[in-house]
Design a protein around this nucleic acid. Sequence first.
DNA 1: GTCTATATGGAGATAGAC
DNA 2: GTCTATCTCCATATAGAC
Lengths: 233, 233
Amino acid sequence: MTRATRAAVEQVVPAPARKSDETRRRILNAALEIFRERGLEAATMREVATAAGVAVGAAYYYFPAKDAIVLAFYEEAQHVMRPALEAVLARKASLEATLRGIIQTKLNTFADNRQLMSALASHVDPKKPLSPFSAETAHIRESDLHFFQQAVMQTKLKLPKNIAPYVPRLLWLYQMGVLLFWVYDESPEQHRTAVLLDRTLKMLTVGLRLAALPLLRPLHRLAGDLLEVVYGD
Amino acid sequence: MTRATRAAVEQVVPAPARKSDETRRRILNAALEIFRERGLEAATMREVATAAGVAVGAAYYYFPAKDAIVLAFYEEAQHVMRPALEAVLARKASLEATLRGIIQTKLNTFADNRQLMSALASHVDPKKPLSPFSAETAHIRESDLHFFQQAVMQTKLKLPKNIAPYVPRLLWLYQMGVLLFWVYDESPEQHRTAVLLDRTLKMLTVGLRLAALPLLRPLHRLAGDLLEVVYGD
DNA sequence: GTCTATATGGAGATAGAC
DNA sequence: GTCTATCTCCATATAGAC
């Protein structure tokens, strides 16, 4: 079959995958627009379906629940952010600068959908699918973690042996905290979050410099002990 | 009216306040039992009303929403804990021991209703009434904060001037974190939480001892700066 | 004020059309 | 596989009985 022939066939009999992708996309876009306008809670699946020109059941065929739409948005954002995050790492700057770059990239990406993020941020319960700690979001979490691992490796920090393995996960957690704060930060232009981010990053840098002091040995032991149990296999 | 007469009257015409209190109590108890058995999400207001022997509307007359029942439970627990918390403070022990006592008292009080607490813990959004950060729970928060204030005052710590005012609130937040961890801690007998609590409290003690070091001055400045903006009026 | 009966509107499930 | 029509069950609202 030549390329032209195949194209012709596809015009007559549109590939099913193509068609369904388009419906899915239409539902997703309609939903996101309504979420942004009216807020996630206020939006109903009926509105979404109507706006997308399908029956309610169709929306549920593509997204098992309202939350799943938000998850799809998040997955897409994750994908969109990747080049920017890789660019940050490529700069091979200090850990502080790299972390700042990573977190700032996320804030920028989500800026237009800040209140939409509350759906993801507000579920702490690991059993809820949308929780950043759930099994359903594990793949996002892992791929995210990867950036923090790289950030740490690049700066060849001298970290205590018993703490080092947990540092990327701790930084990921820190970043989640900043994001959570940001989602509910109603100060003008989220100014408070900007200060939070700046000061805590600086504290991190100072803290890491001090971490090598032998005076802090007892803290290392306690922390290592704790992390082993909390993150324990 | 003699005391005997009044008692007689009350027997014939039960004071309305008395009657409604009893209904409210019946609904509350029925609800808590069902919540414990089947879990908060799975429990429906219908079940609760039926179990309490009233119509659904009656349940809503006393509690504007399902969440409000959980809040009522929490308020009651707060009241029940008070003597135990005051006893902890009366011991006038070290800050570490006092904090340990306060937090352990809470864990003990809530032990039978651990999963019920998830309703309170899982709402981070300050706009949701049940959130520990909401306006609706402000009175609980303040009264809670009071214990941490006392704990700090008793130990006459030498804290940097620009940080001292925020320490009770930071400790309250720390305690919320421990509680949150505990709610979702599925390790046997919540062993992980026990380790978390123990180690972090010890780290706090070590940390406070080191806090006085002039070496840490830059951290003080950054932290004070941060707290002023984040907790800013 | 206390409570019942009933209504409303939404999330999500399902049977079956194509 | 894709989608519509329809159903169930629930939270919450409301009219009005007592």
